[in-house]
Simulated assay, not measured.
Amino acid sequence: MSGWERSSTARVVSPARPRKLAKVPFVELADGRLQGVVSSGSDIERVYVSSVAAGTYAFACSTNNNRPCGGARGTFCNHLRALVGEAVLQYGAERVARYLRVDAGDEELGAPLLTSAMTSTRPPQGDTTAAAPVFSRFLRHLAYLELASATGPLPEMQWFPPTRAVA
Rank of each mutant, 00 (worst) to 15 (best):
A150V: 11
A58K: 14
H141Y: 14
S50A: 10
T151P: 01
E45A: 15
G55V: 03
C69K: 11
D43F: 09
S149L: 06
G110F: 04
E108Q: 12
L21W: 13
A30M: 12
M118P: 13
V47S: 13
D31K: 05
E86F: 10
P155A: 08
T63I: 10
S116M: 10
W159E: 03
A111T: 07
P25H: 00
R11P: 14
V52T: 05
V47Y: 06
D31L: 08
S7I: 06
A53E: 15
A130R: 06
A117E: 12
S51K: 07
R137I: 05
V12Y: 13
E86A: 10
A72V: 09
P153G: 02
T151V: 11
F138N: 02
A10N: 11
R46T: 15
P18N: 11
K23W: 02
R73H: 07
P68C: 06
A82W: 02
F160Q: 10
F76C: 06
R98P: 03
P124K: 04
D31P: 06
G71P: 04
K20L: 11
A148I: 04
R33E: 13
C77E: 10
E5S: 12
L113K: 12
T128E: 02
S7Y: 02
A143P: 03
S50T: 09
L21V: 08
A82L: 10
R11L: 12
R67E: 11
L80K: 07
N65T: 12
A16K: 15
Q158E: 06
A10K: 15
A97N: 02
L100I: 03
A132C: 12
Y144R: 15
P153R: 08
S120W: 00
L139M: 13
A111E: 00
S50D: 02
N78E: 07
V84I: 15
